[in-house]
């Protein structure tokens, strides 16, 4: 997969919420479209997205075909200590994406 556009602050204050924004390139094929030959184009969407810091879940999403192409997600996190944020997602064909960001908390 092509790398996403990810916006996460590298330095945050302890206990203060901050925003995480991600934009992932994906057609999010709905499974409702037909091609020029009239055949249904198989569904292929990012169906699962997870964000965790040092293994502890921050936010996760189960997604359906109603999520737009090139999905955009914005959510927030609040950390007590420094850690590594891992963002992972998978699509219907087994394609996977992963990003990792070290966040230092002061």
């Amino acid at each position: 997969m092509v790398r996403p556009l990810l916006n996460v602050p590298r330095e945050v204050r302890a206990g203060v919420a901050f925003e995480v924004r991600i934009l992932i390139q994906h057609a999010m094929e709905t499974g409702f479209r037909r091609d020029a030959m009239g055949m249904v184009v198989a569904q292929d969407i990012i169906n699962r997205f997870e964000c965790a810091v040092d293994g502890e879940e921050v936010f996760s999403a189960t997604l359906h075909p109603a999520i737009s192409a090139n999905p955009y997600l914005a959510f927030s996190a609040r950390l007590g200590r420094s850690g590594t944020m891992v963002l992972r997602w998978v699509d219907d064909r087994g394609g996977e994406g992963r990003e990792e960001v070290s966040i230092s908390v002061s």
Binding site: A17, F18, I67, Y72, S76, R78
Partner: peptide
């Protein structure tokens, strides 16, 4: 570790 109940998509 979620920072409050907000999500946008």
């Amino acid at each position: 570790l979620s920072g409050g109940g907000k999500v946008a998509t």
